[in-house]
Structure formats: structure tokens, C-alpha cells
């Protein structure tokens, strides 16, 4: 790993993500196993419930699978997903809760992963953009986004789809205003909103 680190661009098979992953493991240091995290939500309190500040191991249900990961209490859910679990579909734009690019569902509620601590997810279920396709078939909103060319640079697209797909799961016959309300928080600097609206309306018709 050291060789790659010193001159990563000369290694043909080297990827930036691979490098980040490797660096992450080196930095993680001692892993202190803790059973507290799983009992966080609604179960019996532990005798010593203070976690961290150093690395702890938690389990988290992501896209239907239980995953084990080492994090610090300060690790945001966005970083845990992207860096620890390699689920890089979730994007981080502002990292302050303003742009909604990092939207994931926690127990089916659209939530900002950049403003959620991974340690606080507990036994709730996380769904990311990677988890909404079913049985190898894209979600109707994903298909409609492709069909209507509803993304330009694409950075806001995963968040935009998590907002609109959630809307359609709740309301299969939304009005244009419903779609505008659902995407109120999702910034798009390319200005794709009109196509996002059309794609979502089209997907609603096909659900």
C-alpha cells in the first residue's frame, strides 16, 4: 500500500476509492467492540453506555443487509456509507444539511445522512440509492430519470431520486405541487428541476 500511496497515478489498476479505503483502515487503529450500539434503540440500557471517542464497531442494516463497520462517534452516516461501506451513490454536497444531496431513508423517512451520526442509527433500517432497485430492476423513478434525461452533472440525482421515490411510495398519484414539495430541499445547480418533475409524473403513471 505504501508504494501506491507514494505514486498512485502510475499504478494502472489503482483507484481513488481503493486508496481511500486502504487509508481508512490504517487510520482506524484499535477497534473496541461494543455491544451497546445494538441496544441503543428501545432496549435495555447497558451499564456503561458511553461510546468512543475512539473507534467502535457497530452493526447497521443497510439496503436489507446487516453490515458491521468500525466508526468513531463523530462519523456521519454519509461518511460511514461512502467510505466504510463503499456505497458511494450517496453524495455529499454541502455537508451542512442545506442541499439534500445526501438524502437516504432511515426507516423509510427521507433523512440527511450528512447530519446524522452513524452511531445513532441503531436498529433502524437505512436505504440508499443502491437499495431501491428490486430484483435487478430499477425503481420506476430511476427508469424515468434515464428516459427523460433528468440529470446533467448528476451530483444531486441520487438525493433527488430518494425524495421522489419516497413520494411515489407514499402517494402513487401525486400532483405537480406534491412533487415540488417533496423536492423542496434538493438543490440542483444545473437546473434540472423541470425534467425531474416530468420524470416523476411519468414514473407515477407507470407504478
Amino acid at each position: 500500500m505504501k508504494e501506491k500511496k507514494s505514486n498512485p497515478r502510475q499504478t494502472g489498476s489503482f483507484s481513488r476509492r481503493g486508496f481511500l479505503k486502504g487509508a481508512g483502515i490504517t487510520a482506524a487503529g484499535t477497534v473496541i467492540a461494543s455491544s451497546g450500539v445494538l441496544s441503543l434503540h428501545g432496549q435495555a440500557p447497558d451499564t456503561n453506555k458511553t461510546l468512543g471517542p475512539d473507534t467502535i464497531t457497530i452493526s447497521m442494516k443497510v439496503n436489507g443487509k446487516m453490515r458491521k463497520l468500525s466508526i468513531e462517534p463523530r462519523t456521519t452516516l454519509a461518511d460511514a456509507l461512502r467510505i466504510k461501506l463503499q456505497l458511494t451513490g450517496t453524495k455529499v454536497g454541502c455537508d451542512r444539511g442545506s442541499c439534500s444531496a445526501c438524502t437516504v431513508w432511515i426507516d423509510d423517512l427521507p433523512t440527511l445522512s450528512c447530519m446524522t451520526l452513524a452511531v445513532e442509527v441503531g436498529n433502524r433500517e437505512v436505504t440508499t440509492i443502491e437499495g431501491i432497485a428490486k430484483n435487478g430492476k430499477l425503481h420506476p423513478v430511476q427508469e424515468a430519470f434515464i428516459e427523460h434525461d433528468a440529470s446533467q452533472c448528476g451530483f444531486c440525482t441520487p438525493g433527488m431520486i430518494m425524495s421522489t421515490a419516497h413520494l411515489l411510495d407514499e402517494n402513487s398519484n401525486p400532483t405537480l405541487d406534491d412533487i415540488k414539495s417533496a423536492t423542496r430541499g434538493n438543490f440542483c445547480r444545473c437546473g434540472t428541476h423541470p425534467k425531474v418533475f416530468v420524470a416523476t409524473l411519468d414514473a407515477a403513471g407507470k407504478m
Binding site: 458511553t50 461510546l51 468512543g52 471517542p53 468513531e72 462517534p73 463523530r74 445513532e120 441503531g122
Partner: peptide
């Protein structure tokens, strides 16, 4: 963010 420890209160 700085490092911090975390405690989840139930009451």
C-alpha cells in the same frame, strides 16, 4: 468535527 464520546439517554 472534533472527536467526542457519545451517550444515548433513555430518560
Amino acid at each position: 468535527m472534533n472527536k467526542f464520546s457519545f451517550f444515548e439517554a433513555t430518560s
